[in-house]
Design a protein around this nucleic acid. Sequence first.
DNA 1: AAAAAAG
Length: 502
Amino acid sequence: MRRDALTTFTDLGVFPPIAEALERVGITEAFPIQEMAIPVALTGSDLIGQARTGTGKTFAFGIPLLQRIVAPGDRDYGLANEPGKPQALVVTPTRELAVQVNGDITTASTVRKVRITTLYGGRAYEPQVNALTKGVDVVVGTPGRLLDLAAQGHLDLSHVKVLVLDEADEMLDLGFLPDVEKLIALTPELRQTMLFSATMPAAVIGLARRYMRHPVNIRAESPDETQTVPTTAQFVYRAHQLDKDEMVARLLQAESRGLAMIFSQTKRAAQRLADELKDRGFAVAAVHGDLGQGAREQALRAFRSGKVDVLVATDVAARGIDVEGVTHVVNLTCPEDEKTYLHRIGRTGRAGASGVAVTFVDWDDLTRWKLINDALDLPYPEPVETYSSSEHFFHDLGIPPGTKGTLPRSERTRAGLEAEQLEDLGETGKARGRQPRRRNGGRRRTRGGEPAAAGHGHSEPRFDDEARPRRQRSRRRTRGGKAVDDGGSAGHAPEADPTATS
DNA sequence: AAAAAAG
């Protein structure tokens, strides 16, 4: 359901302090999921919201959540809620996502005095406990720490009137379900429950009904429409293991590349690739669960600011993370399932921007890839056999042929790969120690220039100003101190929300 | 089997 006329938040029933707070950062226009969900959510109804990655789900629940609570400065303060007890709770599957969602909700709350806090693991208890002691209206957090603080008597969820499960299908998945159930049990039965995700399997909706009362289903797209984002061009290759580092390095030389995220199946492989790319002279950071929380957040901050323009990650960064300027996503190996694929490649092509998603599929994973391909109705049943020297690989990704053979290959790459492969074959009994760091090999980054070439007859990935989405962002954003010009024209940008997360 | 999430 699209309207031709621009819909403002005020049109949707959003009250002045929130509309004004959003206006202050240049957010004036509601996007489809917001347009559909906000009026329903404001009535207090339970709802299940589904919309593609990067199309504005966070504000779709964040805005009504703020409007439905009573803040200290509000005139009718104290009517319905005990001061200082959280009235709204948002649960996310990763700590970094909790931080991000906290930031977005805070953005919409700057005009009112709303106390919002983030509660998650890997950090000291003291500041979190102190915040709770002082009094909090909205809590965003991850399950483990929330339960922990509740068990210790610091967190009282008995006054929660709005509960949101962000990335709801993940939160209701086997790994999280027990904790999430415990959390829900700590909240009042009479509450509003909202579920949001880009992926919402029917089974999950069925399960969710146990925790909801007559939920309204809201989908920003028709059910038969593709779940992938049309402005992201997808490429699927069958690559050889020993060639992958080289392919990634070449891919990172694509013209007009912005930020790139590379997804790995394991923490160790992610760290190894990050080290390797660093050796090759790329500005890269790694984020995965083997790192301390400080290092994880530092990596993400460096990436957001553009201090590093390559982030190697495990699936810890697959969902919800919204970083402006990500033009390339690489899957080092075939993702687990279509949901993971969708969320990973959804880190690019956000809010109407163009993106490129490259997936490497090993021989062993061909069957699994076909399942993903079929589930999402993609046109890539047979991944293209490719080597780092293949002409069409360069052509597809817009890399000038002249760069061939210019990248140093570190010795550690081969050593690491061979050791890993032996391990896979079960031929090494003991854990492999970390390889010694080599000194920086060279600086080979090439950026900017001509638009990237098209591939597979899909939408043309281009990052020059002329290829930017027609629907211009109404918000000026800055990154690394300088303004980012979003430009505008061409393309078929469906919706655009600056601070969207999925 | 891996990753995430409490420590």
